[in-house]
Amino acid sequence: MAERYSSFEPKGTRWFLQRITAGFLIVVLAFHFMLLHFVNHAYEITFMGTQARMSQIGYFATMVLFLGTATFHGVNGVYNALVNQGLSGTRKTAVKYTLVGAGLLLTVQGIRVALAMTGMNVTL
């Protein structure tokens, strides 16, 4: 059996990370909803207010981490859902790289947005 898989890439890693990110996301997503719907009402959001929040280093770091974990958790979840439905072969490989690409794009764009929210010029 040993040659059928590589011991350097245990299949359980993604399963484990999915649970770890879940634990983090539970807390941060709840916090995010509370802050932007109850503490600050969504309809009162202005760029000034956003900039004030994002300029705090702790908040900024939390939001970037939030983005990263949410992207992983979501994209990995989609991939798992498709594998569960019997996705295999070339289509599986194609879906895998499409999802990795989409995830990276989302993260990069998200970080640009986060930096812009601090007032930084990120126009290309």
Binding site: F47, L67, Q109, G110, R112, V113, A116, M117, G119, V122
Partner: peptide
């Protein structure tokens, strides 16, 4: 993220 991308020109 798409909607919040309006922060980029806003900055």
């Amino acid at each position: 993220i798409a909607v919040l991308s309006t922060a980029i020109p806003a900055a």
